[in-house]
Simulated scan of single mutants.
Amino acid sequence: MHHRQRLLHQDRPYDAVPAVNPTFSQINTTLDNPALRPAYFSFGKNEPQTLDLANDSTADDTVQVMVSYQYPLLRRLRLQMVDRRGRTVATPYDGHWISRNDGAGTGMAFYGWDGTRTDGTPAPGGTYHLRLVFDKAMGDADLAPPTETWTSPEVTLVR
């Protein structure tokens, strides 16, 4: 008889641990997790953003998603930009084998988009969403989804 030992986290299988850290927002009640933000190290609630490349300001030339993840080891983490039809137009971040090495309510990462497609060409003006895709290492689909996603509020790209 084959017996597979389960790794446990707070008396439950790691598979059941959510990718996104719920403790982060419980401890930091003024912040959402994840949160779509206007700039790197901008903290606050999750809100629609405008990426305005037509004005003279550089303050709104990127949008960022701030996230604190909880799962101990991600096989892969992607930030995708998707259009209104759900098609991926850019993948600004695609990381492999990412470990969480911070405590509860701490440890933030920022991932951003500057209005370009994956091939480096400008994306057309319009409405987009950032999507985080978390692929858990050692996931067991019978216990919990091995992949989790989060989709941001709207990002309006102005050219």
Rank of each mutant, 00 (worst) to 15 (best):
Met1Asn: 05
Met1Cys: 05
His2Tyr: 02
His2Met: 00
Gln5Trp: 02
Arg6Gln: 08
Leu7His: 07
Leu8Gln: 11
Leu8Phe: 10
Leu8Met: 13
Gln10Asn: 11
Asp11Trp: 04
Arg12Gly: 07
Val17Asp: 04
Pro18Trp: 00
Ala19Cys: 14
Val20Ser: 03
Pro22Gln: 03
Pro22Val: 08
Pro22Thr: 03
Pro22Gly: 06
Phe24Ile: 00
Phe24His: 03
Ser25Phe: 02
Ser25Glu: 10
Ile27Phe: 09
Thr29Val: 15
Thr29Met: 09
Thr30Ile: 03
Thr30Pro: 05
Thr30Phe: 03
Thr30Gln: 06
Asp32Glu: 06
Asp32Gly: 09
Asp32Asn: 14
Ala35His: 08
Leu36Gln: 08
Arg37Thr: 15
Arg37Glu: 12
Pro38Met: 00
Ala39Gly: 14
Tyr40Arg: 10
Tyr40Lys: 12
Ser42Arg: 07
Ser42Phe: 07
Gly44Trp: 04
Gly44Asp: 06
Lys45Leu: 15
Lys45Ser: 14
Asn46Arg: 05
Glu47Cys: 07
Glu47Pro: 07
Leu51Gly: 09
Leu51Phe: 02
Leu53Glu: 06
Asn55Met: 08
Asp56Glu: 15
Ser57Asp: 14
Asp60Arg: 03
Thr62Met: 14
Val63Gln: 07
Gln64Ile: 11
Gln64Ser: 14
Val65Gly: 09
Met66Val: 13
Ser68Asp: 12
Tyr71Val: 09
Tyr71Gln: 11
Pro72Trp: 04
Leu73Thr: 14
Arg76Ala: 15
Leu79Val: 12
Leu79Pro: 13
Leu79Arg: 04
Gln80Lys: 12
Gln80Cys: 11
Met81Cys: 12
Val82Phe: 06
Val82Trp: 06
Val82Arg: 13
Arg85Pro: 14
Gly86Lys: 07
Thr88Leu: 05
Thr88Lys: 06
Ala90Val: 12
Thr91Ser: 13
Pro92Trp: 02
Tyr93Ala: 11
Gly95Lys: 11
Arg100Pro: 14
Ala104Gln: 13
Gly105Tyr: 04
Thr106Asp: 06
Thr106Arg: 05
Thr106Ile: 03
Gly107Gln: 05
Phe110Arg: 08
Phe110Gly: 09
Tyr111Arg: 09
Gly115Val: 05
Arg117Ser: 10
Thr118Met: 04
Asp119Ser: 03
Gly120Glu: 06
Gly120Arg: 07
Thr121Lys: 04
Pro122Gly: 06
His129Glu: 07
His129Lys: 11
Leu130Glu: 06
Asp135Phe: 07
Lys136Val: 04
Asp140Lys: 00
Asp140His: 02
Ala141Ile: 11
Asp142Asn: 09
Pro146Lys: 00
Thr147Trp: 00
Thr147Asp: 00
Glu148Lys: 02
Thr149Leu: 00
Trp150Asp: 01
Trp150Thr: 02
Trp150Gly: 05
Thr151Ile: 03
Pro153Gln: 01
Pro153Tyr: 00
Pro153His: 00
Glu154Cys: 02
Glu154Gln: 07
Val158Ala: 01
Arg159Gln: 05
Arg159Met: 01
